Simulated assay, not measured.
Amino acid sequence: MLVSLSIVSSVVILVSIMVNSGGMSSFFYSFNSSSGSKEDGLFPLVQEAYAKHLPVQVDELYRNVSKVYDNKIEPSYLKIQQNFIDDTMSCEFCTRVEYVSVTQKSAAFALSDATGFDLSGAKRVKFFIMGQQGGETVSFKAAGKTLPGGKTMQDIMKEEKYQVYTNELKLEKKWQVIEIDLTGKDLKGITHPVAFEIPGAANHGNAVFYIKDVQYDINAPKNPVPDKQAPTES
């Protein structure tokens, strides 16, 4: 058995153990340098341990996609194609979104994780977005938390309460930088870090656009998308 120790920070040691089978197991060893005492001994290295280390690449923490759309009338659909590649438009492992609604109803989707993560310290959400034709209309939501049982929002995404709801934005046929201001927001227990709403009527029931590099980081936003009043809770 091979054991290697690596200093991750001033108070945390990463222990990697090469087991006989050839696999590698990793553990954090927490040590309080001021008191000279260990805190929790060895415990498994889990994804949540990285939640507070900003910047955070959102799709690395939040692996699920929550969708809301009119799926009762064919051929309406909302397709979310992750890890999409198109070198002709610098779309390397981006997300392709296609929405068609014969009733021209709105749709929305969010990256999500039922556990939630503490993203405290982040000052903005930043990502890139581009319309396939240009002129597609989208709005954004950020810093969402699942509502307790029985409560809903008067919004297309009824089961989550977001701390930021933005105005609608018309997309260009080139990559745009989007910033959402998180200043003063409670970022503990975030289950839905970012959501995208596609207004049906404004898009005439049809929209295709691309998203990449969604991050929570500590940089102050320079030109954030204007936000709007949050919907009411019921």
Rank of each mutant, 00 (worst) to 15 (best):
S35T: 13
E159P: 03
Y29D: 06
N206D: 06
Q104T: 11
A122I: 03
C91E: 06
N71H: 09
N64K: 10
M18W: 11
N64W: 04
N64G: 00
E159C: 02
N219P: 03
P75N: 13
V138T: 05
A122N: 04
S76R: 13
K126A: 12
M157V: 14
A143T: 00
L187Q: 11
S9F: 09
S66F: 07
L111M: 08
K151N: 08
E60V: 05
E179C: 02
Y162N: 03
S37I: 09
Q104Y: 09
E159A: 13
V138M: 01
D213I: 09
L61T: 02
T232R: 13
S33M: 14
R63S: 12
S30L: 09
V138R: 00
N206G: 04
G131A: 02
L119Y: 15
E92L: 15
N223Q: 10
Q229K: 15
K141F: 10
N20D: 13
F117P: 04
T95N: 12
V214P: 01
I178E: 00
L45T: 04
T137C: 06
N219C: 06
S66P: 01
K212Q: 14
D118F: 08
I178R: 11
K151M: 05
E39T: 12
P226Y: 06
V97C: 00
Q133A: 10
S4K: 12
I13L: 13
M89P: 11
P75S: 02
G135F: 10
P148N: 02
N203E: 01
Q229H: 08
V56H: 05
N203A: 05
Y165W: 11
P231V: 01
F209A: 08
N206P: 01
E160K: 12
V214R: 06
V214N: 05
F28Q: 07
L14G: 02
V125S: 01
F128L: 15
F209P: 03
S26F: 05
K212T: 08
P44G: 03
K38D: 14
S16F: 11
E98G: 06
N64D: 15
S16T: 15
Q47G: 00
S35Y: 03
L111V: 06
L111A: 10
K228E: 12
S106N: 13
E92W: 09
F28K: 10
I211Q: 04
G150F: 02
L14N: 10
L45A: 04
S112H: 09
D217I: 01
K79F: 08
I156L: 14
D87H: 10
D181R: 04
V214K: 14
E233H: 03
L111G: 07
P148S: 01
M130K: 14
K174I: 03
S26G: 01
A107W: 00
K161C: 15
N20F: 04
N223I: 08
Q154S: 13
L111F: 15
G116I: 09
P224G: 08
P148I: 02
G131R: 00
Q215W: 15
Q57D: 13
D87S: 15
G200A: 00
W175Y: 08
S4L: 12
F209N: 08
I13Q: 03
L14I: 05
G121T: 04
F127H: 07
A195S: 07
L169M: 03
S33R: 15
K173S: 13
D213Y: 10
P193H: 09
